[in-house]
Design a protein around this nucleic acid. Sequence first.
DNA 1: CTTGAGCTTCCCACAGTGGCAAGCTTGATA
DNA 2: TATCAAGCTTGCCACTGTGGGAAGCTCAAG
Lengths: 136, 136
Amino acid sequence: MNIGQAAKQSGISAKMIRHYESIGLIHSSARTDAGYRTYSQNDLHTLRFIKRARSLGFSLESIGHLLSLWQNQERASADVKMLAQDHIQQLNTKIRELTEMRDVLLTLVEGCQGNHRPECPILHGLEAGPNCSAAS
Amino acid sequence: MNIGQAAKQSGISAKMIRHYESIGLIHSSARTDAGYRTYSQNDLHTLRFIKRARSLGFSLESIGHLLSLWQNQERASADVKMLAQDHIQQLNTKIRELTEMRDVLLTLVEGCQGNHRPECPILHGLEAGPNCSAAS
DNA sequence: CTTGAGCTTCCCACAGTGGCAAGCTTGATA
DNA sequence: TATCAAGCTTGCCACTGTGGGAAGCTCAAG
């Protein structure tokens, strides 16, 4: 199967497949005499694994670790679990940060008339600092 | 005040202040004869505005809009409000995505023994796709 | 006058993805 | 068989926002 087919079937763009190869995330695929990359079902399996890991927000670096654990029959599930928990932590941190931002913004927006006049608590908030008293 | 002072007092690194100037987010500051950038209280005010907008997650592009509204005495608060609401939307979308990722991962992690043995539901989940039945 | 801190510009890096261009291959059709 | 479109190749540039470093100038204090 050529790269276009592999892209369609894995959900990863051809561009990205080449990129993943270039950074060593996946092994260099086989090539035809003309130099076309060819992909086996096994390769496809790996690409799908990557696709799903990406969709859970793992970084390419973490995915590298996950792949090597996946392919290592002697792995300890504890190692995988640690990676996953670590990522959950990061997700929670990010979620918390974004939620705080949103809540501050919501407060500001609620106070804003949103009319034709220039008076605007949102701008005042940015000026004075919503977190001015609460440090930064 | 030199750029170093401005950086300390605004919380934006000197590096970034120069960058913001280079992309036109802020006006080019005054210079001494020797070519050193100098910043007034007014400039500092602007930098702090940017700092706070950044801390609420606004993109530099949006901050450009916010700045011009801020400096325009004839703005309509409705315009500011729209920008803010738009950003809240984006934050909510992101929060939702990350939360979904986290929840899927939590489910996988719960099923994993996390011991010395290779059997690992997390890897199975990545293989088969946690969202395999639920589309992607 | 020397020294060290601070400033200048310019280039490189990161993660992850997209786009474009020049040139070759492949397969089908006229 | 000649040709044409679609698909492949590599390579370079873009984005966002930030940091690092180098080479060289300036300023203030000793």
